[in-house]
Each structure stands twice: as structure tokens, then as C-alpha cells.
Design a protein around this nucleic acid. Structure first.
Ligand SMILES: [Zn+2]
Ligand SMILES: [Zn+2]
Ligand SMILES: [Zn+2]
Ligand SMILES: [Zn+2]
Lengths: 146, 146
DNA sequence: CTTGAAGCTCTAGTCGCTAGAGGAATTAGG
DNA sequence: CCTAATTCCTCTAGCGACTAGAGCTTCAAG
């Protein structure tokens, strides 16, 4: 049984983040000392390490919640878990495709700018007229990170 | 002079977003009708189209604010504008590199799963132990979209 | 002149944290 | 045993870039 700071160090998850995970029900409410401080077990450490790894791979917390509840039923088929991972892979691939288009558009802007005055700047010019992009970079997909 | 709905349609920016841009000072406060409704000019339309295009390319609003203020001084050197675009390109490239690592890790998980029970699921297993990843996908960079 | 669409303001919610205030508890050293 | 440093506690607010909704007013067409 160890306090939150040691759990944080062991997993690389910051202390306020651990409390946040507890608040949203991703981690169970731990035992407390007489003085009201949280005390964790090895089991919670492993659960948090799982969460951290899944976050590093870009899974949203909701997906992680599902994965955790699946992993509590080891006898069942893993089809649902695999499906969550496949969906995440699809998200990552879509994001990459979009970023590749952005990269190309930015690169072209920079390649064509002669670095003179603003009046002649290709960057400013292209931003003012998507027609000059020639290739298409889709519209901004509503925002997700990782 | 046209109302906000027509501006929204012309630029593809949603009405509440236009009001939000005004609120944060990215768009000027427009004239109003006697009944207090916003009336826009062609100039604002062009400014908003610029913003929209830059957003589509992933520029954060703060960068767009700088680009707009630069474009108001056409005689100056465009070095600053080019630098903003270069930084954005670097951001995009970094994000792509990270996503490529994620994609590979996810793909490997899925490739190695025999799709049996949860107890044997490679997805669940790997998420519980980053050692099984072999290759490295760094820690999650604090979140930005696009 | 009536109706329905489009406009207005304001508040709160999204995601996944992060930062800070203002205090209580624990731990190590003397 | 006492003090000082560190860690812990709760609570609220903020980030970016919007989105959604309530409850109202104004405009344009028929
Ligand atoms: Zn330039
Ligand atoms: Zn474009
Ligand atoms: Zn599986
Ligand atoms: Zn890993």
C-alpha cells in the first residue's frame, strides 16, 4: 500500500491526473489513511499502467473504459476489444492522411515564396485563396489530439 | 452588406463560430441594423475566408491572428509570415511521425491477436505491458487537433 | 398581417487534463 | 518531541476551438 505520489512516479501519470481518473470513475476509489490520504495497491498500479499505455496509443478515455471492462471478463471473446483497436487504427490512419495533405500544402506555399515583402508573400497569398492550393486538403475535422 | 447567415454560407464557417471569432477579436465588430443584427462587408468575408483556410491547414488561432496582422502591413518583409508557416509545417511533421509509430504499434497488436478469448487477446495483453511493443511510440504530447 | 426562418444574448458543455489557492498530514532530521 | 520540508487534500477555474441549447427579437415572404 503506497500513496499517490509513488503511484504517479511508478506509472508516469501525474498526481492530478490520477485524481481526475478517479473522479470520472476510471480508477476505483482507493482506501484512505486515518488522515484521509489515498492508499493504492499493486492492482491499481497495473490498471493505471494499462490506462497510460492506451492513452499513449491515442485511445480516448471512453474506449479505455470499455477495454478495461472487457479485460475484467477474461473468458469472453476478444472480438469487441479487437474492434476497438481496429477503430483506433482507422482513426490514426485517417488523421495521418489528412496531415500528409496539410504538409504538402504548407510545403508548396513555402517552396513558392521568394521571401520578399508581405505584398508578394506566397504564404499570405495562398491562405487568402484556396484555389492556389491546387491539391485538396479537406476541411478541419473536429478536434482530437494524440 | 449582408447578414451573418449569408457570410456563414459563403465561407463555410458556422454562425456561432463567426460570433466566437468576433468575441475573441479575430473579426472586427460589424455594423448593425436598426434591429441589432450584424451586417458584413466583402472585406470581412475575405478576412474570414483567410481564417477558414488557415484553420483548415491546422494553424492555431493565435498564429492566424499574427498572420492577419502581418497581412495588414504589406510593405514589410514576409520573413515572419514564412516563419509561422515553417513552424506549422514542423508541427505537422512531428505529429505525423508520432502517428506513424502509433499506427505501427496498433497494427502489430492486431496482427498478433488470434481472436480467441480476452484472456489470450494480444490487444489487452500489449496494452498491459509496453515491453511487448518492442518499438517505441513516445509519450502522449499534450493535445492538439487538426 | 401573419408566419416561420433567421437573428440576438447568455450560459454551459465538450476532451483530457493543468494550474492554483489555501489548507492538513506525513516524514526526516535534530 | 519539535520543527521544517514535503506531500497530500479539496475545490475552482482555465486551456483551445468550438458546439448546443434556452428563451427571446427581428426580418422577409406571401
Ligand atoms: Zn513569404
Ligand atoms: Zn487550400
Ligand atoms: Zn484480441
Ligand atoms: Zn507501447
Amino acid at each position: 500500500m503506497f500513496p499517490i505520489g509513488r503511484l504517479a512516479k511508478a506509472t508516469g501519470v501525474k498526481v492530478p491526473t490520477i485524481r481526475y481518473y478517479e473522479q470520472i470513475g476510471l480508477l476505483p476509489e482507493p482506501e484512505r489513511t486515518a488522515g484521509n490520504q489515498r492508499l493504492y495497491t499493486q492492482g491499481t498500479l497495473e490498471r493505471l499502467a494499462f490506462i497510460r499505455h492506451a492513452r499513449d496509443l491515442g485511445f480516448p478515455l471512453e474506449a479505455i473504459r470499455e477495454l478495461l471492462s472487457l479485460s475484467d471478463r477474461p473468458g469472453q471473446s476478444c472480438a469487441a476489444a479487437d474492434e476497438i483497436a481496429r477503430r483506433q487504427l482507422a482513426v490514426v490512419e485517417a488523421r495521418m492522411a489528412r496531415l500528409a495533405a496539410l504538409r504538402d500544402a504548407l510545403q508548396r506555399m513555402l517552396d513558392h515564396c521568394a521571401s520578399g515583402t508581405i505584398a508578394d508573400c506566397r504564404v499570405i497569398e495562398v491562405l487568402g485563396d484556396h484555389g492556389l492550393c491546387a491539391h485538396d486538403h479537406g476541411a478541419a475535422e473536429a478536434g482530437h489530439p494524440a
